[in-house]
Design a protein around this nucleic acid. Sequence first.
DNA 1: TCTGGGGTCCTAGGACCC
DNA 2: TCTGGGGTCCTAGGACCC
Length: 428
Amino acid sequence: MIALIDCNNFFCSCERVFDPSLEGRPVVVLSNNDGIVIARSEEAKAFGVPMGAVAYKYRDLFREKDFAVFSSNYVLYGDMSKRVMSILSGFASDVEIYSVDEAFLGLEEYRNEDIREFAIHIRQTVKQWTGMPVGIGIAKTKTLAKIASHSAKKIKDYNGVCVLKTETEILDALHRTPVDEIWGIGRRLSVMLHSYGIHSALDFAKTNQNWVKQKMSVTGLRTWKELNGEKCFDIDTSPERKKSIVTSRTFGQYISEFVPLSEAVSNFASKCAYKLRKQNSCARELYVYIRTNRFRTDISQVYESKIIELPVATNSTIEIVKYANIILKEIYKPDTLYSKAGVMVQNFVPDDQVQGNLFDTIDRDKHNKLMKTIDGYNDSLGREKLRLLAQGFTRQWHLKNEHLSRCFSTNIKDAIIVNCNDKKEKPE
DNA sequence: TCTGGGGTCCTAGGACCC
DNA sequence: TCTGGGGTCCTAGGACCC
């Protein structure tokens, strides 16, 4: 059996852990730039705030109904995620961290009847040790475990744990799951399936196998098989290194001038290089794009991008920033209201298998040592204390986040604030 | 005024080879 | 009038996930 452990309304729950007065209050967490709603508590859902809602359109509702509104605090969420995952790792040898708030556990060892008891125990432990509420779905395949975890959240009597074991349990769960809630079936495919009268997961599971293969290719077929109890996706305990890395942001304000734009792109490039080093990869290709606000109909739209092959695969911030700026110079047009930029690296090789270049003029050992030193400082001192001058200090591109909570679990000053809350004292 | 960010996999079709 | 058969590799675009 496979278990899926899924944190409930993860970002909202993270905020609640450090401010229990939020319990029972509607909570929403906004995207970068406070643009859209990316997490909602149950109370917020009950007021009809959809996922992806444009935040400013709901401002009145938020005020009237006493919503707690947060900008996203990824440092806090990342740390909470680590804590939850490390607890889960203690419960099974096969653990796949599937996303920031979800993990699959292989339960090969637990064939006995009290698998449900075991799940309840996991749930209680995570709650007690971190304050994080989770739902657990258990079934024979990952896709069925996903369905089980939906049921665990939706059906109150289940108390957050749903085990799909018997034929009846599985058929019941499939019957009450709409086809568009199946893992692997998105918006386009569900429209297609509905048009053929396939509305529930059960309808889909009963559909002819060849038809599924023909209409939805092997990916759809795998989902179909998994729903019918045939395992197609294994637990992946050591995911490979990423195959592409992107850093992109929508700016807090429009940028037209080259210099601040270049600072933004340099920062994104630097972040990409850092992420490359963290997974011991070097990139052979670099892609940069800049664009105007695609939602504005009153200005002419610009999307400029270019990809280049790097002379030698690299993860040096110095080199990647340099080439990113060379690209930027080529695609930049003055008098344009840019609202977003992005840098992507791809086509990786392991950092110990970099193919040299006869005409290479760069002392790569030196770069590597320098990068190691910079990373060492930055990892201990805080993000980007040491950086290239090209990254600038003006941060004109920086994001709007007017409702940011503190980094309670990773910053000592913020931690003190939590502890002083009762006494109404403020730390120096 | 105001609309996020970061990934993966699969397929069709073109270019090329013998 | 008539124009083979079989393969590989690459890319863009579409679909999905969180």
